[in-house]
Structure formats: structure tokens, C-alpha cells
């Protein structure tokens, strides 16, 4: 007997939650307990009184599982609202990465040239290294990191995705 797996779709979910102790553990634990995937999860408070946080989760699963994830998140007591950005119309998503690259000579020049193409900024430098700051979609960051790997990638720090729907209205 072999375990069967289903085809997955990527979805970006945006949640507003009461900013209380344990909320992150509650949400992360729900994903592990029910066997859902988390590709990335970001959280930060978004109101002046620090009462409400926005959590952005990138997950993947078949449509039925995504629907369950939404319903399961929605029934957690501190969760105010759950929106599937992928389903709710056009939206903007960004993540930020810090990318450390080491090299000298031609590699160094090529790194700067590529950074320019990707509109990455140099935020730290030594004679033998750069740290680039890049923002963009996950794909763009992946591509940039992939190119830097060929030049002399040392390490990467990524924030994970945040997103908002386009237009004037809140979700």
C-alpha cells in the first residue's frame, strides 16, 4: 500500500486577528494538527492600539482543502476575518529579502548589474561582499536568489508574503 497525494494550488490568505497571547500558536497549530501546508506566514499588528494584527498565510492544497482551511480559521475565536486573496480578485503581494553575496572582480560587477535589473538595493557592503534588499513577488525573489547562487550567494533572509486586494476598499 502507498500513500496517495492530491494536486495542490497556491493561495494567499489574509486574516485579521485579535492581537492576544498565543494567537500565532493557535493558527500555526491548526495547520499542523489538520495537516495543512504553510509556505509562508507573516504577522504584525496594524492598529494604533496594537489590538489587531494582520496575518498573511501562503498555503497550498486542493480547492476543497482551501475551503476547509478558511472555515477552520474563521471559527477560531480571536479571528475577525479571513479572506482568500487569490479568490477575491486582483491583489498585490510582496515579500522582502536580504541577500548576502560574496565575490571579487567580475563576479562583484555582475552582482551589481543583476541587482540593478531587479531593482535591488545595496544595504551593506565590504570589499568582498554585498547585502542586497529586494522586494517583489515570491517568483521575482526566487529568480534573483537563483542568479546570485551562481555568483556567490552566502545566505538569505526572507520576510514571507504580505498582500492586499487592489482598489480603494478594505478586505
Amino acid at each position: 500500500m502507498h500513500i496517495q497525494e492530491e494536486l495542490n494550488q497556491r493561495h494567499v490568505l489574509s486574516l485579521t486577528v485579535s492581537n492576544e497571547a498565543g494567537i500565532l500558536a493557535r493558527i500555526a497549530g491548526l495547520f499542523t494538527a489538520r495537516g495543512y501546508n504553510i509556505d509562508s506566514l507573516t504577522v504584525a499588528d496594524i492598529t494604533p492600539d496594537h489590538g489587531v494584527s494582520r496575518i498573511t498565510i501562503v498555503t497550498s492544497g486542493p480547492p476543497k482543502v482551501i475551503d476547509q482551511i478558511m472555515a477552520q480559521l474563521d471559527r477560531l475565536v480571536p479571528v475577525h476575518k479571513v479572506t482568500d486573496l487569490t479568490e477575491s480578485g486582483p491583489f498585490v503581494e510582496r515579500e522582502l529579502a536580504l541577500v548576502k553575496v560574496a565575490g571579487i572582480g567580475e563576479d562583484r560587477i555582475e552582482a551589481l548589474r543583476l541587482a540593478d535589473v531587479f531593482r535591488a538595493k545595496v544595504v551593506d557592503t565590504t570589499i568582498e561582499s554585498f547585502i542586497f534588499e529586494i522586494t517583489g513577488t515570491t517568483d521575482k525573489v526566487d529568480n534573483f536568489v537563483g542568479l546570485m547562487r551562481q555568483i556567490g550567494l552566502v545566505e538569505v533572509g526572507r520576510t514571507g508574503v504580505v498582500g492586499l486586494i487592489r482598489g480603494k476598499d478594505a478586505i
Binding site: 476543497k64 475551503d67 476547509q68 472555515a71 477552520q72 474563521d74 471559527r75
Partner: peptide
């Protein structure tokens, strides 16, 4: 009364 029970197992 629990939305998450609907379409969880059977559509």
C-alpha cells in the same frame, strides 16, 4: 451551526 462541518467530508 459550524460552517467548517459543511463540505468537510461530503460535498
Amino acid at each position: 451551526i459550524d460552517r467548517s462541518s459543511i463540505n468537510k467530508i461530503v460535498d
